[in-house]
Nucleic acid binder design. Structure first.
Lengths: 138, 138
DNA sequence: TTGTAATCATTCGAACTAGAACTATCACAG
DNA sequence: CTGTGATAGTTCTAGTTCGAATGATTACAA
């Protein structure tokens, strides 16, 4: 069946592309003296959110988010405030230094991004397809 | 700049999709009593190749390929033969049991694949775009 | 109200990964 | 031929990840 071949190709290509993006993040992380997960976490912390929301945005387990947050808090880049509406949850808030570092991370991640190898219209088409798939997967 | 927004969206969606595929592989691995890497390695071992080639196909470091091969060899699913043309290299060859397990892995990976959520023409388009990107990245 | 299930964050253990260091072998320019 | 650099595979270490178990809090049905 040809469809199975397409499925396998897509899985493999996604895996390879994800790895390429990982390498890019790793370069940025090295440049900033951080780990890849810390850079990704900073990128996602565009506003005060809970640890669980961060885990969802990073597509990882909550326990891993706790681990990353520990390191970023040790470095003084963020604080965990009690959540105003839910005493179980905590609100992650960047410090002034954390906000600066985040801006730097976002800037570096945008430079020389592997996705830039595609034409603008291809990037747009790719986003459409991935977005559609993401939506259907819930 | 709108293009930067697209770049970020694509990166994020690729990451999310890669994670979704990972979860799928993990389910299959649990079902087979193997680890995710072992399942992926089996899938890539469609013919006798070297450890380095396997690492390239798995998009991981050579040291990691060694690690995975150790486990699969312990389980009697493959053997490392001396390479006929290069005494540095080794040829990875599946055993009869390894061949059976591989067939099972390929079958399970094909069932309920997340990529199946897309229409056939969308899958094809996605493959084209990812393939183009992969090609331009070397 | 009360109890039962679900949710948030954390801790812990086991497994996986990248990267550097090392040995053995190859390629090939001089 | 020779030696200089590149390559294949392995080992080791530090750091990352998942998954299960725990304690605290919330939601909601009886």
């Amino acid at each position: 069946m040809a469809s199975e071949q397409i499925d396998r190709d897509v899985c493999k290509l996604v895996h390879r592309l994800a790895h390429t993006l990982d390498v890019h993040v790793r370069r940025v992380a090295d440049e900033m003296g951080l780990t890849p997960s810390q850079v990704v976490a900073l990128r996602e912390l565009s506003e005060p959110i809970t640890a669980r929301e961060l885990a969802a945005r990073m597509a990882c387990e909550a326990s891993n988010a706790t681990f990353v947050l520990d390191r970023l808090e040790e470095r003084g880049l963020l604080n965990r405030h009690p959540h105003p509406d839910d005493r179980r949850a905590k609100q992650i808030v960047l410090t002034a230094e954390g906000t600066r570092r985040r801006a730097e991370a976002v800037r570096l991640l945008g430079e020389r991004s592997p996705v830039g190898a595609l034409r603008a219209d291809q990037q747009e088409a790719l986003r459409e397809l991935l977005s559609a798939l993401d939506g259907q997967l819930g």
